[in-house]
Amino acid sequence: MAKIDLDNMLEKIKNTQWSLSDVDWDAPGAELITPEQWPKLKAFMADLMWIEHVGARAFAAMAKKAPDDTLRQIYTYFHAEEQRHANAEMALMKRWGMLEDGELPEPNNNLRLVIEWLDRFADDQPVYVLGTVVPMLEIALDGALCKFLLDTVDDPVCHQAFELINGDEARHLGVGFTVMEMQGHGKTYIELIRMTAQLMDPRLILGIASYFPLLNKMRDNIVEMGLPEEKLYEAMRKFEKIGGRTGDGRRNPWFQIIKHHGRFVVDRKKRFYHAPIDALVKVADVIPRKAFPAVPSWVKEITYHPTA
């Protein structure tokens, strides 16, 4: 993956837009979902949709902190595009009879924690923290999940929608890795000092406390769905491979942290990591719904209706 000219990328983004109306959500094929698939697929799609939606919120935070106008515009588009993916995935759920009229799927508790964290703290994070975490989430979760979905589901409308979604995601990853390399240009020492200071920030620690269990929770969900967890790990290793392809990328301290964390995630033998994080997942599962504050209003912006 060659380094990207961000100005050209912005033009490309503007010229390759699509909307939900471009897909015929009533076309034949919905019947190809088997009764066995249906309940698992419903839970899977709800998680996937929420990941897209929190990804959207992360891009919104990055747009606020972007170092230049081009990147600010790109992140503004990515924010909307992730929302579009969530909308399209909801439209698939609606097509498959998984949503009542006006229904919004419930996010799992780990996602609920991430939503809460993003709403309260994401805008205060330096762009490069989210700028490294988001590509990891996209390559690992989005990548693995989407691939699995297309391997499992025969509905042609699902394939059509994900062809469009994956086109967007390829650009998101391209920009994500380019930005990570841009940060590698900074003097490593200064970046390390700055990063250490940022790590001490309790808001970031809270973020880590919601991000780590989210990955393990998703792993569990994937296993539940029958996807070999190795496929998720393969996707996560891609992050290490692409992110570390250049000296600039490797010099980005955030890349190093996320990379090493990724190595822990993909190795179940690392009990010292997995035991406490799995415990956190279990703790999150038992948090009563009432304990969460009202969802922020941006959560209610998603819709499966192609027109409004």
Binding site: W18, S19, L20, S21, Y77, A80, E81, Q83, R84
Partner: peptide, 19 residues
């Protein structure tokens, strides 16, 4: 949301919805 284009019936924004 950024506006993608104006259509026959309204305005398409990048979150994929035609208003």
């Amino acid at each position: 949301w950024p506006i993608d284009r104006i259509s026959q019936h309204g305005i398409r924004t990048v979150e994929g919805i035609e208003h």
